[in-house]
């Protein structure tokens, strides 16, 4: 069938469009040339060495990592509670409440950033790490609620009721039954929140205190209409972490769950 062959070819082209630039970054990270672009002058690991000796980048990495972990903690905690309320209970005005919970996504991030900054200015508070943490958490919250909500729907209440009828207290039931069942949802929400925080640049540029850099703002500062080879190496490392780790975790989870059966 001709139309189908065309659709397949078109799909391959679009996938190429999506992945070719990323693959080029991965390749150029190993280019020996001291300019960040083509032509390729040979294989070299030199830029990875330079990268790990670059104190500014390493500091930005630590900042981003800690910020991401704390954002995941805050956003997931608040998000799980809200998602539990939405999935487990029936009450009036649920649609409105869901819309309200998702509302931070509907505000352009630039506007969200300026608004929070002006509010802080009115309170006479300087920009701080705490602002970044709260700001990132509020950006991540709607996504966490949506992701966790989708996972929670699948957990049936019968398990808890069974535990209760067998004599477990509500607290015991929560820790022995509910919490383990919630774990995948918590993990998915936390991973999402971490990624959103780790990747954020739009709002971070406004919120960061002077002198503090996250990985994206550090890269942004290093770009002067050209890409240094170090940035390519950094890109390689980041892609390995943000793509490789979840893929590996997902692959292992599949492998072990298959083995059990």
């Amino acid at each position: 069938m001709n139309a189908w062959a065309f659709i397949r070819f078109y799909t391959i082209l679009v996938y190429t469009f999506m992945f070719a630039p990323i693959i080029v970054v991965l390749i150029l990270a190993f280019n020996a040339s001291q300019f960040g672009g083509f032509p390729i002058e040979g294989f070299s690991l030199r830029w990875f060495g330079e990268l790990f000796q670059n104190e500014a980048i390493m500091r930005a990495f630590r900042t981003s990592f800690i910020l991401g972990l704390m954002t995941a903690l805050v956003a997931t905690t608040i998000g799980i509670l809200a998602a539990l309320a939405l999935v487990r209970y029936q009450f009036r005005g649920k649609d409105w409440i869901t819309t309200f919970l998702i509302s931070p996504v509907l505000v352009p991030e630039t506007v969200l950033a300026v608004g929070l900054l002006i509010f802080l200015r009115w309170l006479h508070m300087p920009r701080s790490f705490g602002l970044l943490l709260l700001g990132h958490s509020i950006i991540a919250l709607p996504f966490v609620v949506l992701v966790v909500q989708a996972r929670l729907v699948g957990i049936r209440r019968e398990y808890e009721e069974a535990a209760r009828s067998l004599g477990a207290s509500p607290v015991q039931t929560f820790f022995a039954v509910t919490f383990p069942l919630l774990m995948p949802a918590i993990f998915a929400g936390a991973l999402f929140a971490f990624t959103i925080s780790f990747d954020n640049i739009t709002a971070t540029i406004f919120w960061r205190p002077s002198g503090m850099e996250t990985v994206p703002t550090q890269i942004f500062g290093m770009l002067r209409h050209s890409v240094s080879p170090e940035i390519n190496a950094l890109g390689f490392v980041m892609i390995c972490i943000t793509v490789g780790v979840p893929l590996l975790a997902g692959g292992l989870a599949r492998y072990f769950s298959r083995k059990k059966v």
Partner: peptide, 25 residues
């Protein structure tokens, strides 16, 4: 692509379209 850093995905186009990019190369 959602897992690949936004800024990396953006700057990668300099490698494609730039003067030292893949197309010009």
């Amino acid at each position: 692509p959602f897992w690949v850093s936004f800024i990396i995905r953006t700057l990668s186009w300099i490698h494609i379209l730039g003067n030292q990019g893949a197309i010009n190369g």
